[in-house]
Simulated scan of single mutants.
Amino acid sequence: MAANQEDVKLLGAVASPFVFRVQLALKLKGVEYTFVAQDLKNKSEELLKFNPVHKKVPVLVHNEKPINESLVIVEYIDEAWKSYPILPSHPYQRAVARFWAKFIDDKVVNSSRRAAFTVDKEEREKNAKEAVEALQVLENELKGKFFGGEELGFVDIAASFIAYWIPLIQEVAGLQWFSSEQFPKLYNWSQEFLNHPIVKEDLPPRDPLFALLKARYESIHASN
């Protein structure tokens, strides 16, 4: 059955870096979809129906069939809609792209969030160190304009957290582990990424996102 552009829904939250991955993949493919905003403090019946296991966003619903987990969804989108290939065509290169996307989630996203939003000082420092080490690995891996070459690809989509969310988290938490001086190639990549016309269309507005992160940071630290 051919992919049906007219029956695509994305259950998401505007501030989520994982939801943004899916939005970007859909935009790169030119897929029309309906965005259904979710209140994660008061989860809708629709969200619980379509993601009963994790009960979180994003959820892509295509012809009433739900797909969960951001990177899984991006792969699904790449297979369901053939315009603008997101993953490489060669099996080895596809496997490598999946490896780096998982590395970004495991070593950069998780460590960065814990470094900013963990109260214990020792744990914060440990995670900040791990995030810096992971960014250095990515700095060494980056060979071209984007991770996927001259065009945005799977790893770039996974790394959107680095380009947009890490600078905000650093500012909120008064930390510094991603800078142009320390990671010149990765920083230049982040600027190319943020200035890409399709990326700019769907980035969450900076000020509300910053306020949300700051409120979360202050709430966590005020309670301890």
Rank of each mutant, 00 (worst) to 15 (best):
Q23R: 15
R113K: 10
N140S: 15
V31D: 05
V57I: 15
I77Q: 07
K56T: 15
I73P: 02
K185Q: 14
E122S: 07
A97Q: 03
E171C: 12
R21E: 05
G149F: 11
N51L: 10
H54A: 14
K145I: 15
V8H: 11
K41I: 11
A211V: 13
I166Q: 01
L47Q: 04
I166Y: 06
A116E: 03
P167Y: 12
A3G: 15
H54L: 09
L24D: 04
N110R: 09
Y187V: 06
Q182K: 15
D120V: 05
A37V: 11
L212W: 08
K49T: 12
K214N: 07
W165I: 09
P204W: 07
K126M: 10
G148A: 14
L212H: 09
V172G: 02
G30L: 00
K102E: 13
V19M: 00
L10E: 03
Y84L: 02
D39G: 04
I198C: 02
A131D: 05
L47H: 02
E69R: 00
V31Q: 07
A131T: 06
F178N: 01
P205E: 13
V36W: 06
K126E: 09
F103E: 05
L142W: 08
F35M: 13
V59K: 06
S44D: 03
Y164Q: 08
A222G: 15
K27L: 11
E6W: 13
I198D: 05
A80P: 01
M1D: 12
V8M: 10
Y187P: 00
Q182S: 13
F178K: 05
Y187T: 10
E79F: 03
